[in-house]
Simulated assay, not measured.
Amino acid sequence: MSKEIKIVIAEDNSVLNLLLKLSLKKEGYTLFFATDGKEAKTLIEKHDPNVILTDIMMDYFSGLEIISYVRNELKRNTPILVFSSSGQEETVLKAFSLGANDFMSKPLIPNELVFRVKKMLL
Rank of each mutant, 00 (worst) to 15 (best):
L53R: 07
T91G: 02
K119L: 13
K26L: 12
Q88Y: 10
N13L: 05
S85G: 15
K94G: 03
L24Q: 09
R71S: 02
S68Q: 13
D102Y: 13
L22E: 13
L22K: 14
L16Y: 07
L93A: 12
S105A: 15
I7M: 08
K6I: 10
L113T: 08
S23V: 05
D59K: 12
N17Y: 01
K38W: 07
F61N: 05
F103E: 07
G63C: 03
N77K: 12
L19C: 07
E11S: 05
I56N: 00
K118R: 14
K25L: 11
N72S: 12
Y60K: 12
T91S: 13
S85H: 06
F103A: 06
T78V: 11
E73A: 08
V117C: 08
S23Y: 00
V70P: 00
L22C: 11
N77C: 01
A100F: 09
S86Y: 06
N17E: 10
S23K: 15
D12K: 05
H47C: 05
V15Q: 15
D59N: 10
T35S: 14
E65S: 06
M57V: 14
K6E: 07
K75P: 01
F96W: 12
S105V: 09
T35D: 10
T30A: 10
V8D: 10
I52W: 03
L121S: 08
L81T: 00
Y29Q: 06
M57H: 11
L121P: 10
